[in-house]
């Protein structure tokens, strides 16, 4: 479905993507994770033909991207994080407009409209102005627009930002429904529990490179550790780096987070003593983290970026 080789992209002297390699199979929900500035948005923009790249090869849906951007776009859809719709148009006017842009007409238009409306449960609000919808309803309309061309490949960029739990669940159901309809979904999000919940495969990107890729289940199995995550108050990164330098298996995730790789009551007690001596307050301690968050934090710790 997607094969990326040696992909590099520069913004002036800044290397946004560094010989990135990625393979995504057909019919999966693929989670793309990475701290802010890791290169996720650049990668997704390039895959959607919105940005040029400096080196490498990209093949999407069996087609070479540079040679066939139009054909690939017709078979894929990008659902941006920002609500890319018109507040002053009604739900149905928005849908018809974007369908018109994609030159849909006749039976195909009717079928695709019905599909996008029903999967996103928009039936009761078709004549309502988009500007008057709730945050969750707007997100669903945003997704419905992306489904209009019945794409084989969908890019979701943080689709659940700033919405209530009920709407979030509805959106996650929609994404699962896309998979059931044999669509491939590339999903970027900061909500790691969501990724764990719906993704089949994940890749973690950091400093423009894929640092880990695989099926979620096996990655979590391999990563099964006794890690403990300390969330701290009134600490600074240099301060934490001094502590970590004196302490085995302790990693600095960011200026307010420490990750202790192996769990034992003595080690935890010892670390708490050190923190108290340094007058650093502990906000939260999470034990036995075998989840994606621990994996993510460990892999991206060196860069010190936030989640």
């Amino acid at each position: 479905m997607i094969a990326i080789k040696n992909l590099s992209k520069f913004y002036g002297d800044i290397r946004a993507l560094d010989q990135l390699e990625l393979k995504i199979g057909r019919g999966v929900i693929f989670g793309l994770l990475g701290p802010n500035g890791a290169g996720k948005t650049t990668l997704v923009s390039i895959m959607n033909g919105l940005l040029d790249f400096d080196a490498g090869e990209i093949e999407i849906l069996g087609l070479e991207l540079k040679a066939n951007p139009g054909a690939i776009r017709r078979r894929s859809a990008f659902i941006p994080q920002a609500l890319a719709l018109y507040d002053n148009l009604s739900v149905i006017e928005n849908l018809r407009f974007f369908a018109g842009i994609q030159k849909l007409s006749g039976a195909v238009l009717r079928a695709n409209l019905d599909y996008a409306i029903s999967v996103n449960r928009l039936e009761g609000m078709l004549n309502q102005r988009a500007g008057t919808l709730s945050g969750g309803q707007k997100r669903r309309l945003n997704i419905a627009i992306g489904l209009l061309n019945n794409p084989e490949l969908l890019y979701f960029d943080e689709p659940t930002v700033g919405i209530d739990p009920e709407s979030r669940n509805q959106i996650l159901e929609t994404i699962r429904a896309c998979k059931d309809d044999a669509k491939t979904v590339i999903y970027t999000s900061h909500y790691l529990p969501e990724i764990e919940k719906i993704c089949d495969e994940v890749a973690i990107i950091d400093h423009g490179r894929i640092v880990l890729q695989g099926r979620l289940e096996s990655l979590l199995q391999e990563e099964k550790t006794d890690a403990v995550i300390f969330t701290l108050l009134n600490s600074s990164r240099p301060q934490l780096e001094v502590i970590a330098g004196r302490y085995e298996d302790l990693e600095v995730v960011d200026g307010a987070t420490l990750l202790l790789a192996r769990q034992s009551a003595v080690r935890i007690g010892h670390l708490l003593e050190i923190l108290e001596r340094e007058k650093i307050a502990v906000k939260e301690i999470r034990y036995g983290t075998t989840d994606l968050e621990a994996l993510f934090l460990r892999l991206t710790a060196a860069g010190g970026a936030d989640v």
Binding site: N48, G49, L50, G70, R73, R74, A77, F78, P80, A82, L83, A84, L85, Y86, D87, F98, I101, Q102, I145, N149
Partner: peptide, 16 residues
């Protein structure tokens, strides 16, 4: 408004 709301981006992603 279209630029800030990313509708222009979306239109470009739709081959416009």
């Amino acid at each position: 408004g279209e630029r800030r709301q990313n509708t222009l981006l979306r239109l470009r992603a739709m081959n416009v």
